[in-house]
Write a protein that binds this DNA or RNA. Structure first.
Lengths: 214, 214
DNA sequence: TCTCCAGTTCGTACATGTACGATACAGCGT
DNA sequence: ACGCTGTATCGTACATGTACGAACTGGAGA
């Protein structure tokens, strides 16, 4: 029964990790993002500071776990959105995405604006789509638009381009709040409408087949 | 002659600051970006660690000074680029901008991917255009395209949208090098061409006049 | 000339992230 | 039953950014 023991171990460990994430979340809510400190977090759950490192490789790792939670919430929020027209449904993804980013700048920043030379553990880029449910919804709704004949081209390429523009919009709004974008909502809507209108008028080739000469 | 004394003071101070920036630059070149430490920097110029704070408010401030230098180089590189066709000239701005960002990710990140809630000193958002010559060139070349009838609409709005997309492209390529964008150069070119083609087909209204109802 | 003051320099101290290694303990083979 | 090994926990130590205030210094006013 050594396996059973192993399993129990892992389960316990996962539970303690969850407990730590919950405590971190509470800490952030109570004292703001700068209030999240390894020492404080450890004290919260009655551990020694260094014990936290048994569950997280890094402080970055803790932030990442928090962000993953947040993005699950985002995905849920997106999914429970009305989707009468496929293009409108796609726009809703971008709008909700932007609202989330602007409303949770710290989480957004830890996921999308911090160094990713080493991504947690060794998982490949699928982490992007597996660990980030929002991306899945985006691709799904793009595919719906293509299937409905409202967009032409490779869904993944289209989704990537939308992501690029959405991210550019959000991160600039976050980073340069004083730049005269006008109303943030309006700017998001402008970019969103612009992209959809422009994409509708073109046939988007897949990403890898783009000619590399030049 | 109290003014003259004041001036001399300021001049001296500016010189020392420049010396610090130069030393910081050398340090970064020699030991990488993590090697830049206030203590090490102070030791380089023979000061006590805390004396650095007479010239820079923050470590962020030091990085910012370094990045400003880098962006001046970028602007020079852009300006000395052939500009036969106004649209091609505009594309060249984006291409060079992207090449710079991908080639100097650390500088790019400190300028465009770190919190700007408090921008150095109290200068307004013009810091964006005054302190960052690249932005000026962008607007200038957009205006040239509009004047030549190749683009329609408000130059500042068009420039802002181009900046948004360019930044989105660069920052995603920097942050997620493992995502299958395909060849970075090709992806930059794709986004660049896409934007120019799409912008050519529309009349872009000014930023502030965008309707805010939704 | 003496006193005072603003600004520059810096010594010390603190909170933080984290590396290193010690300790304690649970499950295993002998 | 007894020691062995791997793992969870944690005490200590170090480098770092930076706050606080002391010491110094050069020029201004009495």
């Amino acid at each position: 029964m050594t396996l059973s023991v192993q399993k129990r171990r892992e389960k316990q460990k996962a539970e303690l990790r969850s407990e730590l994430v919950a405590a971190a979340h509470k800490l952030v809510q109570e004292e703001g993002y700068e209030g999240l400190t390894i020492r404080k977090l450890a004290k919260r759950v009655g551990y020694a500071p260094m014990s936290v490192y048994s569950y997280f490789a890094d402080k970055q790792d803790i932030l990442f776990a928090l962000a993953e939670d947040a993005f699950e919430t985002l995905a849920r929020r997106i999914e429970e959105h009305p989707a009468d027209d496929p293009v409108e449904a796609l726009k809703a993804v971008m709008t909700e995405y932007a609202a989330f980013g602007l409303g949770n700048p710290n989480e957004y920043r830890t996921v999308f604006m911090t160094e990713k030379t080493k991504l947690p553990e060794g998982r490949s880029y699928e982490e992007m789509e597996e660990g980030n449910p929002a991306m899945k919804v985006l691709i799904k709704r793009v595919e719906a638009c293509v299937a409905a004949g409202r967009l032409k081209g490779d869904p993944r390429a289209i989704a990537t381009m939308l992501w690029t523009v959405g991210h550019g919009t959000i991160s600039l709004l976050i980073t340069f709040p004083f730049y005269p974008f006008g109303d943030p909502q309006a700017y998001v809507k402008r970019m969103c409408d612009f992209m959809l209108a422009s994409l509708s008028a073109q046939d988007i080739p897949p990403l890898t087949e783009t000619p590399v000469n030049c």
